[in-house]
Amino acid sequence: MSEYLLLLLSTALVNNVVLVKFLGLCPFMGISKKMDTALSMGLATTFVITFTTAGSWLLEHWLLMPLGIEYLRILTYILVIAAVVQFTEMVIRKVSPPLYQVLGIYLPLITTNCAVLGLPLLNVQEKSGFAVSLIGGFGSSVGFTLVLVLFAGMRERIALASVSSTFAGAPIAFITAGMLALAFMGFAGLVPH
């Protein structure tokens, strides 16, 4: 049990998907202007990542490996990801049209969020079991949501600051992201490998 807890902590904080592994930077910069939107995006991504890590593990072990067609891995994973994203999009459009409007193009773009494809591939590389894959995926996406919301909070504040025109917008956001990564370095070594 404590092993899984540590795994959760490790994937969420110590090996944060955005700040340490540098995956999923596109939505990290794109959907972090408002805290509420960031939280929704984080939750949608969490949903997608959790399902795709589970789904792709199942496909990997029950379909690709038995049939010996591992070379189709990326293709099948993307098929699963695209389907889950499509499903999420339909649900959000039905449940919350304003959120659908706000997330806009970034919602279908979860498909191309490299964290979503990267995490299942890393699981394969590390030969993780099903539970570890699932919990790792969930932890990673929680970490993604966490930094996305933290970052959005700071960007809301920076939007009110009188940043000089040279640095206003994306440049200062990148600097802030760098500082956030510095802060997350403090978690290094927290979970022994």
């Binding site: 933290l150 802060a183 403090g186 978690f187 290094a188 070594g189």
Partner: peptide, 25 residues
Amino acid sequence: IIRTWGGYPEGVAFAVMLMNAATPI
């Protein structure tokens, strides 16, 4: 937590930065 379990001996600076990040929230 960082002092006790982390890789760095001292955690004040990291802790402050992390909580700075959480301040807007």
